[in-house]
Simulated assay, not measured.
Amino acid sequence: MRALKFLLAALVGVALLLAVVAGVHYRLFERSWFHFNQWHQGEQAQEASLWLPDYQATIQGKVVSGIDDDLSALTFDPDRNSLIAVTNGKPHWLELSLEGELLRAIPLVGFGDPEAIEYISEGVYVISDERLQRLLRIEVNEQTTLIDAAQAQQLSLGIDLNGNKGFEGLAYDTAGARLFVAKERNPVRIYEISGFPFAESTASVHINEHDARLFVRDLSSLQFDEQTGHLLALSDESRLVIELDNNGQPLSSLSLSAGRHGLERDVPQAEGMAMGPDGTLYLVSEPNLFYVFRKPAK
């Protein structure tokens, strides 16, 4: 009898230990505390934020015709009123309509593993090459038929190099001329770069680590909201979009799991995120899926 009690106590102890380990690994404790604060401070936070809990899926899991796989990254182009993306299997620069229709595709030459793209100004974009941890400034116009990395202005960073766990997301603050760069994982980081892509030399480029209190397992994409000055961070593995305030403090979140925000199924592998001037949130997921989230009209 004593041996049985000891065995049961040992099993309970192991189960508790495994629960704690799982909680730490999946950041469950930090997420639970955040969700409690989000609920507790809801009304106050809504007034000064995008307030992601109000968003609902209006287009979900739409297959982008003309793309078979590797749809990655997304940015909104206000001049073209369209979305710009990249693929990394057979690298291409892509233009999509706001309804997820493929409008244009341009081959990318000399890009090893393009994982993020960000609109900077009319016809100017920055692409991140994940494995080599380099940023490339490219220009596209109506006559462009091929984009060659050898012709692009480049910035190589080489921060915490560890293979296919490099730069996965980009966001640009036009007013502050700041480029935010997300490192996917090991460790999860957000860097703030000033001076690129308009610096005449790398001597005028400054890189700082952005103080973001993240509790996600990875980062796939970033989006800067000019109206609030807040940064949105997308995590594929945590199936979550988090709104961060100017101090990097989480304010609100949008779950990408089935049953939340009108989603019928989990978003399988969210890789890119962009926001229109009206606050509409666009997402793409590998292999070739398109999503739109909007706030209901009041």
Rank of each mutant, 00 (worst) to 15 (best):
S257A: 12
E192S: 15
L161R: 11
D148V: 12
L4D: 08
V216E: 15
G248P: 05
N246L: 12
G229K: 03
Q153C: 04
L289P: 02
V24F: 13
L135C: 08
Q41V: 11
V292Q: 09
A116N: 11
D160W: 08
D245R: 06
P187I: 02
V20N: 07
D160E: 15
Q143N: 10
P268L: 08
Q38D: 15
Y282V: 04
R137S: 10
P91Q: 03
D69H: 14
A22E: 11
A171G: 07
T87M: 01
D225P: 01
V21A: 12
G262K: 01
G259N: 03
V205F: 13
W93T: 03
A270Y: 07
P78G: 02
P91T: 01
G110D: 13
M275L: 07
M1K: 03
L52G: 00
E271G: 06
E95I: 02
Q153V: 08
S253I: 04
G229W: 04
R185T: 10
Q60L: 13
R137N: 06
K295D: 00
D77P: 10
L170P: 10
A175V: 13
K298I: 14
L7T: 09
A297D: 13
A233D: 03
I138C: 05
D278V: 10
V292Y: 02
N208F: 10
K62A: 11
A10V: 15
M273Q: 05
L289S: 06
K5W: 09
G66H: 08
